[in-house]
Design a binder for these strands. Structure first.
Lengths: 334, 334
DNA sequence: AACATTAAGTTAAGCGCTTAATCAATTTAA
DNA sequence: TTAAATTGATTAAGCGCTTAACTTAATGTT
């Protein structure tokens, strides 16, 4: 059997309270006893049960992370960054891929509730916001990562998508482009915002983006191919394409190549996210980088704060600026 | 405060034992009381604490998954598959990226011990096997996923890497290739085995692979580039390259293109893993697919079995056959 | 009718830990 | 020298749940 606090106490000739105190560095303990106890712990290889500790009303030191799909490189990187920052502060992460399914969303939330996680980070566009509102009512610290919902007053940490779109547009303009197409990620608020920012930049330059140059796609290979073909088939082909995610951009580049359209010679491409796809693409994909690591840092920080001081201030919105990563997929027309 | 079993019991006018029984579907309860209790649970929105349940000696219904880096697409897919199968059986997953660092390995194992996870899946080549052996001594169900270690007698679920390498070689041979180069993943047993299988297939055809055509690399963009260049600089260039991972293969393809070497016209490429990189590459990358989902299914199944019947049979080794996925990166020379 | 079964609950102990309250032994203050 | 304060440790209650053992009432058996 796994040794318990009693085993340590008995062997060290002290009470379990004393052991608890040396484990947690609380209360008054003489140096002598402390070292004695520590010695015994080593000796019998004692490892305190955080399950029992959690029951005593303390934290579980666990947070749930809901992503749509961990197999998507962007979310994998997000999860990785969150995991890192959580670990630094002693927290573990329970991974939940919702697959954009309402059922899984609910199932996982129920699980997290039962497990008494100390907080939940939501990085998936919810299917059913009601369920999440319920969580707020229950006073579970919540944080929205990289997503946003107007009617929701929890903490939010996200990339400034509008600004990201603007950045992309501005960059293409600066490089002399005047004809654009956009592949927007369907059904996602962030996709909408990126488009909005992009349009804004064009407007500032007195250019209007016609609807026929905006096509929708999910961030999946098959759908991205369709979207790419659609754009390549346009009779007055644009000189540049802004893709809502690197994956879509990468697929577009391949389709273009297959159609004997060279990048960036014939058409320039700019992506979003700065995932491994951008790095691996040929030519290297110029893209808008989300500050994943920093987002994660803020997210964990903010969440821990609302764990530590419950019902303190209402939801902050932290919006970090994206950054343009210049590679070789955009041609300078000037 | 979160409602407890007492609140339900009081409101339903029964003892907490009764409530516990309806929650767990154990013991004898009349239909009448059962529905009454269920009603009350709904009413006050009761969700049993699995923390408390775990303390009573039952499971925590949590398993730890150690991967080197969740941001690596292969492991992301592995994690995803494991998560799915775990969830189906009621288990949650704690995500642990070790980053190949001994310190993180130990840190995470300690965490998992404290958290009393019911079992651990190790999908990372360990830095220090001693630590893992210790776990075995403690009777923590352990399972090695996609890795292997001769001196280790836990359960193992892995792809048959030798066979995978053999398949790749066989396929190239069948397509008329006689000159090969291999990019092997450094320091990984699986890499070694893939090479071994590959060599074996050549041997069966009476061909020997000279060492100068074997280069080593990690599965990272920068290193893969170097390896690719090294091969492209060979004076008697091979007609085909077997890359240890899809990422390496994809990078090789890009480097080749940059050097004006067309694929598969001038040189054929075959990868390993069948990750998104293979799908996205242009031309589509022919590769050896690991049966990720099936591996995950077996892994979870096997692990749960040793959780349910502790110290039952010693470590099984389940080795699933990889499969060749034909795309367009290999030219038929016949 | 007398007893054995069975069905439906209840009681109470215990899981491994934290912590407020308490106590005994020293040390300090006056 | 005696009271007050400090230090170092112990006691015991309780966290929310499970479960073996027990009770009570209703049924069944001969």
């Amino acid at each position: 059997m796994k040794p318990t606090i009693y085993d340590v106490a008995k062997k060290a000739g002290v009470s379990i309270a004393t052991v608890s105190k040396v484990v947690n560095n609380t209360g008054r303990i003489s140096e002598k006893t402390r070292s004695r106890v520590k010695e015994v712990m080593k000796e019998i290889d004692y490892s305190p049960s955080s399950v029992a500790a959690a029951l005593t009303g303390k934290r579980t030191f666990t947070i749930g992370v809901l992503v749509p799909d961990i197999a998507n490189p962007f979310f994998a990187e997000v999860a990785r960054a969150l995991e890192n920052h959580a670990r630094m502060t002693g927290y573990a992460i329970i991974l939940c891929s919702t697959d954009y399914q309402r059922e899984r969303e609910q199932d996982y939330l129920e699980l997290l509730l039962k497990k008494q996680v100390d907080g939940i980070i939501i990085a998936t566009e919810a299917r059913d916001w009601k369920v999440f509102k319920k969580l707020l009512d229950k006073n579970i610290p919540l944080l929205m990562f990289s997503i946003d919902h107007p009617s929701f007053s929890s903490h939010v940490v996200t990339t400034d998508d509008i600004r990201g779109g603007y950045l992309a547009g501005r960059y293409l303009l600066d490089n002399g482009h005047r004809n654009f197409a956009v592949i927007v990620e369907e059904n996602r608020e962030s996709g909408r915002l990126r488009l909005e920012g992009f349009k804004q930049s064009l407007m500032d330059a007195g250019i209007e983006l016609s609807d026929s140059f905006v096509v929708f796609s999910k961030s999946r290979v098959e759908e991205a191919k369709k979207a790419a073909k659609q754009i390549l088939a346009l009779n007055n082909r644009p000189t540049s394409v802004f893709a809502a995610t690197d994956l879509i951009a990468a697929v577009f580049m391949n389709e273009a190549r297959k159609a004997n359209i060279s990048i960036p010679e014939d058409i320039s491409v700019i992506g979003f996210d700065n995932t491994i796809h951008a790095e691996i693409a040929d030519p290297g994909l110029t893209t808008i980088a989300q500050p994943t690591d920093e987002l994660a840092r803020y997210a964990i920080h903010q969440l821990l704060e609302s764990i530590e001081k419950p019902n303190s201030l209402p939801g902050h919105r932290i919006m970090l600026a994206p950054e343009l990563i210049e590679r070789d997929s955009v041609k300078n027309l000037n």
